[in-house]
Amino acid sequence: MTNSKRILKKKINTTGTYLILLIVAFFTLMPFLWMLLSSFKSLDQIFASPVTLFPTEFTFKNYITIFKDYNFGRALFNSFYIGVIATGTSIFFCALAGYAFSKLKFKGKNILFLSLVRSLMIPFQVTMVPAYALFNQLHWIDKHIGLIVPGMANAFGIFFMRQYMSGINYEIIESGRIDGCSEFGIFIRLILPIARPAMASLGIIFFMNSWNNFLWPMIILKSSENMTVAVAIRAFNSGVRTPYNLIMAASFVSIIPLLIVFIAFQKEFISGITKGAVKG
């Protein structure tokens, strides 16, 4: 093969790659574009025949309606504070247990850890009905505590933290013990600062899961002022015609916070996903 032929082949190859990537990116982004365009249409425009790509009459009314008449701001606030509390406590307890499983010696460690990993395979639907009955007795129905407490520690997070902390040197822990630190003191002063990157990764994933959680909040939240974002979007759909204009506006607003978090912390996000899955 001559040199020019090889260069030509490489060029075609590269162009093909860009072409495929562009087509895929178009299809992954297109629904978002359609969401955005629809959010500026009135309901009559959405159900117009023939459908137009761009709004014939550009309107901001949907955004005003969801905040003014449907109190969507309240839902955003609820999701935000539930996410922050659940994420914060969960990171802490997962790190604590992950530290114990990776660096401390105790009887029954392997069996306990195995049971923890096995619990990852239990689908939520198995526990859904009994959990509802339990929460009913606790009077946790239609309360945010029912969303926060069950998520305060989870098996995936502990597994993740254990993986990360197994890379920490024992000498650090020993030096803490010699200095007379308590085990908890070692964890707070020496381990947590080292584990900060892992905590950031985990925190982003936890917050995303909490923000997007739908089924359980849908089951236990009843009153409109307690609704989280996902439940509130579902609640728009109560009339004869689905108010797609409002739903699209609310959906677009709901993805903005996660989008910002994702773009700002892309590295942590991706390392959180890959470390949790690939290393294990």
Partner: peptide, 20 residues
């Protein structure tokens, strides 16, 4: 980012946009 973004989007929003 473009290919990954659907993953961080709430399932409810996705269900509605696909229905539409």
């Amino acid at each position: 980012t473009a290919i990954f973004v659907p993953y961080i989007t709430s399932g409810v929003a996705i269900a509605y946009i696909f229905m539409l």
